[in-house]
Nucleic acid binder design. Structure first.
Lengths: 197, 197
DNA sequence: GCATTAACGAGACGATCCGTCTCAGTATGA
DNA sequence: TCATACTGAGACGGATCGTCTCGTTAATGC
């Protein structure tokens, strides 16, 4: 079924070298100071090889993240059965992760990449933000199914607030929140007896 | 006390022309396609005049916002005495504002500017984000003083969530929230009887 | 009025990086 | 062996960078 490739196959080694070089350069100098020429030089490949496979810098970054060369903090949401504890763990871990300069640089890089154009932003959100958002929403739905959230609770609003409040502090250049998990208690309505710890 | 200036004073007309030209060009083409040379050309001034007063493009944008040539949605938080209604108004207005393409472009421009370096991010946050954050915090404190918020409520967490959840949708390339004010009910603990509408 | 001072508009300048292009070399399948 | 497609290297014109130097202009101080 699938057509067999005819000529010389794509070099996996070079592909990895490009993604690794991109990750390193972003950590060292920041997204917008990274140039295609610098990536090619460090990866030891020609510029054409990069332009053949990636149409823009932001797409290289997106691939680097998808491939795991650049790690985003918000990957998995734990599910121990206790929604509040899981979310507190997740938010706390995300906040701790954001203290790491390399992670801050990466998040800024992604924001900058997403800032380039509306189209770029959509492509990045499909591959990066949407999966994380989806994982969080699934965890919220599971908790709702177990009765740990009101059936009428607006899960989108909760997910927006959880992701947004962490993202906000990073992008605004604010110091990390003193009590990052406080937002969880607020959102889950800790007022009437829900709070633990 | 203050030293009298000696030579030719800075041209206020040119300063305004630069900020206006920047605002127009951002709206027309997007932040990263705007060049210093294009700003100078449209403002009818020399490049050196720009470089004399601004050390980077992001600082021009910051000044344009501070001066009101580019309007950010989150300026004033109303204070009618009803905290919930005021916040719902504010969030709803912010969400509506974010539907306007020019505003989306501006917010992305600021995010891109803040992504440049840690120092840039700090400077922008001092002049732009911090005042908005402060205005929101003052409104929350006023509400808390009137007993509309628990005395132990974590106001920082509420402010983070309010600003962050709007910012998040813009930067992530998500469509505007269906019910933007839902976050207010969540944060104010609408569960036990506080909800209106 | 006249010297002094500093910002002004204009644009030349070398540098960097863009994205395209060509080139000889290399790894695969037919 | 041949055709094919990808490889690293780098030349190329163009855009923009940030610096620099003009002659000009609008203030202050004598």
């Amino acid at each position: 079924m699938t057509q067999l490739p005819r000529g010389r196959p794509r070099s996996e080694a070079t592909r990895l070298a490009v993604l690794t070089a991109t990750a390193e350069l972003i950590a060292e100098t920041g997204y917008d100071r990274v140039t295609i020429e610098a990536i090619a030089a460090r990866a030891g490949c020609g510029k054409q090889t990069i332009y053949r496979w990636w149409s823009s810098k932001s797409l290289i970054v997106a691939d680097a993240v998808i491939d795991g060369h650049l790690r985003l903090p918000e990957h998995g949401v734990p599910d121990t059965g206790d929604l509040g504890a899981d979310l507190r763990d997740w938010v706390t871990e995300a906040a701790a992760s954001v203290r790491i300069p390399e992670h801050r640089a990466l998040i800024r890089a992604l924001a900058a990449a997403a800032s380039e154009t509306e189209a770029e932003s959509l492509r990045l959100s499909e591959h990066l933000t949407a999966p994380h958002y989806g994982a969080l929403m699934r965890r919220l739905r599971a908790g709702q199914a177990r009765g740990q959230l009101s059936p009428e609770a607006n899960l989108d609003a909760i997910a927006d607030a959880l992701l947004g409040s962490t993202l906000f502090r990073v992008l605004a250049g604010f110091p990390p929140a003193a009590h990052p998990s406080a937002i969880v208690d607020l959102l889950l309505g800790a007022g009437p007896g829900g709070r633990s710890g």
